[in-house]
Amino acid sequence: MTLTAAAIPTDVASSDAALRRFLHGLPGVDQVGADARAAALGTRSIKTTAKRWAIDTAISMIDLTTLEGQDTHGKVKALCAKGVRPDPTDATCPRVAAICVYPDLVAIAKEQLGDSGVKVASVATNFPSGRAALSVKLADVRAAVADGADEIDMVIDRGAFLSGRYLEVYDEIVQVKAACGVAHLKVILETGELATYDNVRRASWLAMLAGGDFIKTSTGKVSPAATLPVTLVMLEAVRDFREATGRQIGVKPAGGIRTTKDAMRYLVMVNETAGDDWLTPDWFRIGASGLLNDLLQQRHKLTTGHYDGPDYVTID
């Protein structure tokens, strides 16, 4: 196996063995080196005009998320209103990329968002564990799409992946993708359960080969959720995948990104790893909830020159 990804065998998905040969032939990831690179990028200092641009870009990339058992129509409506107009006092503040909800709340979100441009994303496939029969998972997806979901965030079967049943994981993604129809498919790797960066790289390639439009770090229900090194490995994967296939895949870190500083670090990493082509909401998303308010507070600070407190942004 060479380091170049250029040669993807045509029968790569013909068997577990073929997938294993390919995935295990990908270059290894040295954990210490990857951590060090992520930490080094984390020291970039983003100030003034760059910060202003990055804050607005980050807001526009947010999948504003609520995934709680206690979610209600009221909560989803409020979140949609916030997503469309994050800062009611400032019309220049961009809208978020999408509202992310459970499947049964897709219809209400769709109704709220209308033609605002904010998309409806829904977690499906028995999120977050993914432990259900395939037929149930596919029904979950179809229901969400039927109710108007623009994007589906599926979870992979980590059990199958960790026990080496790559073909099963692959087939499932293929089938979910088919069930999505025109909806975009984000494949959640749940990197917190994959244990190694080598596994993150392999799962990323598996998801891309199977037709995912985005690869996403986490459900947010498992710790650790998104981390900088994991996102680095995934950004390298989409960069290399495009070199190899010409197909561009998006990346979505989700969970644990709470502060403007966190968001800046992710944008820096996108900038210096994948580059300009990924610096748009079409190709990079941040799954978050509390992050938006911190971005708004920092945005106020840049505008007014002084710090404000949590009473000056709307609660979700």
Partner: peptide, 11 residues
């Protein structure tokens, strides 16, 4: 490096 995200001076 891309052109979109232009780091401002941070002396």
């Amino acid at each position: 490096m891309g052109k979109l995200f232009d780091y401002a001076p941070a002396p």
